[in-house]
Computed example of a mutant assay.
Amino acid sequence: MAFETDTFEEPKDRLARLNGELRNASAQEILRAAISREWPGGLTYVSSFGAESVVMLALIAEVDPSLPIVFIDTGMHFPQTLDYKDEVIERLGLTGVRNITPSETERKVLDPKNMLWKTDADACCALRKVRPLEPALEGFGAWVTGRKRFHGGVRMSLPVFEFADGRYKVNPLANWTQGDVDAYLEEKNLPRHPLVSQGYPSIGCWPCTQPAADPNDPRSGRWVGQEKSECGLHVERNERPRVF
């Protein structure tokens, strides 16, 4: 069951208020409002510890390093991602990171040879990412994402605040450009994911991630050759592909 949001304000009214007030606010202002005022004790960040994740993680560390952070360990991450995660946690002093894994019982039934990604990438994402996230979000009324409009596709119209599947989403970096990301990384001297220098501007699981095919499209190395651009975490339930 999803976290019950405040009853005194309908989601559409709350979204109108928040997007009106904070549409052009800084990422820090958005985070402070979300953490301290809107969802105190009821907010989490879901992080892949990918190419640009350290930006949001550093912003969180500035505001509240104890904020709960969910990392979905799909069992298919690059080894470099797992090492990088440990480095970033220590560097930023994050104390709320929790690892979430797919159901091992379900994996043994549906993907015993760990090859599902070859035959049905949507089903693999559902097994290893989407379904594990549901219980991880129990008790939270909202969650933070690191999505940005410049990543293109459906993200080009991304608002700062959304409401989907019974929870709010907070997108503090929606307005950021690649230049903003690069400038913040340099200003804070943040460690980069080691695969970025090898041509990976967007990093997911190793079977479905390649160096970017188009340098102007950060996500052009994800699910190459497939009509797929999202793992499903940010797709509403009724719009997700039908899988087992």
Score class of each variant (00 low, 15 high):
Lys169Tyr: 00
Val46Met: 03
Phe150Asp: 06
Trp176Leu: 11
Ile203Met: 11
Trp117Ser: 05
Val130Thr: 12
Lys85Ile: 06
Ala126Leu: 01
Ile69Ser: 05
Gly204Gln: 09
Arg167Met: 08
Gly225Thr: 03
Ala61Phe: 01
Asn189Gly: 12
Glu62Val: 04
Met156Tyr: 00
Pro135Asp: 09
Gly152Trp: 09
His151Phe: 14
Thr209Gly: 09
Thr177Arg: 11
Leu22Lys: 03
Phe150Met: 10
Thr119Trp: 04
Pro191Gly: 12
Asp83Thr: 09
Glu29Ile: 00
Gly42Cys: 10
Val235Met: 07
Ala126Tyr: 14
Ser220Met: 09
Val130Asp: 10
Glu186Met: 11
Leu43Met: 10
Ile203Thr: 09
Trp117Lys: 01
Ala213Phe: 06
Arg128Lys: 14
Gln28Ser: 13
Met56His: 01
Leu110Gln: 13
Gly204Ile: 12
Ala61Asp: 07
Pro191Tyr: 07
Thr119Phe: 12
Trp39Arg: 10
Gln198Gly: 01
Pro211Asp: 04
Phe71Ser: 10
Thr209His: 07
Arg219Ala: 07
Arg237Glu: 15
Ser197Trp: 00
Met76Trp: 11
Lys129Ala: 11
Lys129Cys: 12
Gly50Ser: 10
Ser36Phe: 13
Val55Arg: 02
Pro79Lys: 11
Arg242Phe: 07
Gln28Trp: 00
Ile69Asn: 05
Lys85Cys: 07
Lys169Cys: 01
Ala61Gln: 09
Asn216Val: 00
Thr101Pro: 00
Thr81Arg: 02
Val170His: 03
Leu43Tyr: 11
Gly204His: 08
Asn114Glu: 13
Ile89Gly: 02
Thr177Trp: 11
Glu186Gly: 00
Glu4Arg: 13
Arg14Gln: 13
Ala34Ile: 05
Asp73Lys: 07
His77Pro: 01
Ala58Gly: 06
Glu186Ala: 15
Glu236Arg: 15
Gly42Gln: 14
Thr119Ser: 14
Pro241Ile: 11
Gly93Asn: 05
Leu22Gln: 03
Pro207Trp: 08
Ser220Asn: 04
Asp111Tyr: 08
Gln80Ile: 07
Asn19Tyr: 05
Ala16Met: 02
Thr105Asp: 14
Lys108His: 04
Pro201His: 07
Val88Cys: 08
Glu52Met: 00
Glu138Gly: 04
Pro201Gln: 08
Phe140Val: 03
Leu158Tyr: 09
Tyr45Lys: 03
Phe8Ala: 12
Pro135Thr: 06
Lys129Met: 10
Val88Thr: 02
Ile69Gly: 02
Asn238Ala: 13
Lys85Gln: 14
Arg222Cys: 07
Arg128Ile: 13
Gly20Trp: 05
Tyr84Ala: 04
Cys124Glu: 05
Ser197Cys: 03
Val154Met: 09
Leu233Trp: 04
Met56Pro: 00
Trp176Ile: 04
Leu43Phe: 11
Gln198Ser: 12
Thr44Asp: 06
Val55Phe: 06
Gln178Cys: 02
Ala61Ile: 05
Arg192His: 15
Trp176Ala: 10
Leu233Gln: 01
Val235Ser: 02
Gln178His: 12
Phe244Arg: 13
Ala2Pro: 15
Lys113His: 14
Arg107Asn: 02
Pro159Leu: 09
Asn189Lys: 15
Glu186Tyr: 00
Gly42Ser: 15
Arg17Leu: 12
Glu186Asp: 14
Leu116Asn: 02
Asn171Leu: 10
Asp120Pro: 03
Lys108Leu: 13
Asn24Phe: 10
Cys124Asn: 04
Ile60Arg: 06
Pro159Ile: 09
His77Asp: 12
Ala2Ile: 14
Asp182Glu: 15
Val55Pro: 02
Tyr168Phe: 15
Pro135Leu: 11
Thr81Ser: 11
Asn114Trp: 10
